[in-house]
């Protein structure tokens, strides 16, 4: 019987998605994308109004338009802005904000002018080159300090035959002592704060920390600072905040949850920046 299973598997075709197709792919995450030429002040205002996590905000109107600020770190991909966006906001096909710094997750557009007012700056500091020590293999310890398990489901998918993270020499390990990178999902809860600190301390130097998901990047739906204006919000004592309220973070992977392709792109981008590995 066991041999039947083996034969079955030998006969089936390979599912592996080539890395070129994974990088910057974000299908299935519903991350929004702004078409600057079509963006008008009413659209921007409507989008800011419906956004459940204040990912979209607008600046006070200047003459002839206003600035739309989109923070991908807060976006949960609910698609509401696309509904009111009238073509100016649509689900992105390509996504280049995975594995970047926190400031690079925020983008601003000026309505009417058709130009992107300011994109986050890209940089890698030379000091961080120490991470080149990590060399070819990377061991990841995944840590959940309070996620809803949506992010875990997608991280688990990284080991399936479509994404197969091991082909890049990247492994998930059981102990933080074996890890080079902590992949941290979810908002940090008060109950997990000590465990997060201890896990971080157990990882040998040099170590990388990657925050995953809207919750990991900004606290997402759970952080009261992201609650829509005008709703009465209780102080949420159970949450400490996003991952960077506790630990230094090297890269952010937004999405709710990020798709496996976004996770692969993000992890490789962080590696590229901090180890020089392409």
């Amino acid at each position: 019987m066991i041999t039947d299973v083996m034969f079955h598997s030998l006969r089936s075709r390979s599912q592996l998605i080539p890395v070129e197709d994974l990088i910057r792919d974000c299908a299935g995450s519903r991350m929004p994308e702004i078409i600057p030429e079509l963006l008008t002040a009413p659209i921007a205002a409507a989008a800011a109004e419906v956004c459940p996590t204040r990912a979209i905000t607008t600046d006070t109107p200047v003459e002839g338009g206003c600035a739309l600020r989109l923070d991908y770190g807060k976006c949960i991909g609910c698609g509401r802005c696309v509904e009111v966006g009238d073509g100016a906001i649509r689900p992105a096909k390509r996504f280049s904000h995975s594995g970047v710094s926190r400031s690079e997750l925020v983008q601003t557009w000026q309505t009417g002018s058709g130009v992107e007012a300011q994109a986050g700056e890209m940089h890698t500091s030379a000091r961080d080159r120490v991470y080149a020590l990590l060399g070819r293999a990377l061991n990841i310890r995944q840590l959940d300090p309070g996620s809803c398990n949506g992010c875990e489901a997608e991280i688990t998918a990284l080991t399936n035959p479509y994404y197969d993270l091991e082909r890049f020499g990247i492994h998930f390990v059981a102990s933080p002592k074996h890890a080079d990178m902590l992949l941290i999902t979810g908002p940090v809860t008060r109950n997990m704060a000590t465990a997060v600190q201890k896990t971080y301390e157990a990882v040998p130097l040099p170590k990388l920390v990657v925050a995953v998901g809207a919750c990991g990047c900004s606290g997402g739906i759970f952080d009261r600072r992201n609650c829509p204006v005008g709703t009465l919000v209780n102080l949420n004592e159970e949450i400490i905040g996003p991952v960077d309220s506790l630990l230094p973070v090297h890269g952010y992977i937004p999405g709710c949850p990020p798709t496996p392709a976004m996770l692969v792109s993000g992890i490789l981008e962080v590696l590229n920046r901090y180890t020089g590995r392409k």
Partner: peptide, 12 residues
């Protein structure tokens, strides 16, 4: 350990 006060979060 993942208690996030979600029921309270709904309120309001």
């Amino acid at each position: 350990y993942t208690h996030k006060g979600t029921e309270k979060l709904f309120e309001g």
